[in-house]
Each structure stands twice: as structure tokens, then as C-alpha cells.
Amino acid sequence: MKFTEEHEWLRVEGDEVVVGITTHAAEQLGDIVFVELPEVGAEIVKDDEVCVIESVKAASDILAPLDGEVTEVNEALADEPGKVNEDPIGAAWFFKVKPADLSQMDDYMDEAAYNDFVG
């Protein structure tokens, strides 16, 4: 699994990459009450805003960590955004992307580096 400085995690599954937010991010954001997901089929470009996530306190964007095509989104989050607090690394993944260039993953941190990053 890889991690971005924007507190996303990325996990390769076959020729897709699953994207979610880290436990640290979920804890910092607090109770999540709204998630807006990208559309399946959308072509996304690294650093574009692709999701909106709102907690009781504020709204934040999730930026696309990779170029590629969105192949699946976790519709369950729309109805139960609180899942992001319960299981951010597992059941509360956000979307899957078919990356245009998997080498973009190389820029990101491994778990140990991310843990150092969040201190």
C-alpha cells in the first residue's frame, strides 16, 4: 500500500488501484457526514479534485492521486458516510481507478514513511 501527503492510501488490485483516506485523516476530520464520489467512467488527472468529503466541521477535497479512468465507486458511502470513520482502510474505500501510468505510484510513501510523515 502507498500513501500520499494528502492522506490518501492507494492499493493495487490487478490492473486497478483502490483509493481511500487514511485512518489519521479520518480521525482528524472527525465524524464524516457527506461524501461526493466521482462518476464511473470519468477520466481523472492527477491533482484534480475528484471527491468531496464533509465532516461535522468542514468540507475537504480529495485530489486524484493518479491519471486514469474511474472504474468503480463505493456507492455505500453516499448513504453511510460514517463508514469512513469506522473502517477507512477497508470497507470505506472511495473509488477504483485504472491508471494510465502506474509509475506515478512511485512518488508516494510506503507505510513506514507515511507514519513518519504524520508523526
Binding site: E6, H7, I21, A25, Q28, L29, A58, A59, S60, D61
Partner: peptide
Amino acid sequence: MPFSTLERGAFASAEGITISGNRT
């Protein structure tokens, strides 16, 4: 990247984490 997602109003930057850009 600075964290400061929090809405005008919201609870000050000390609270702050932003997943990414400022949205507010």
C-alpha cells in the same frame, strides 16, 4: 501542503487537516 480545510468559521487551523485543497 498546509492543512486548513476548515471552513471560515470552523474551528480554526489548529484543528486542521485538509485532505487536499481548501474547500470552504
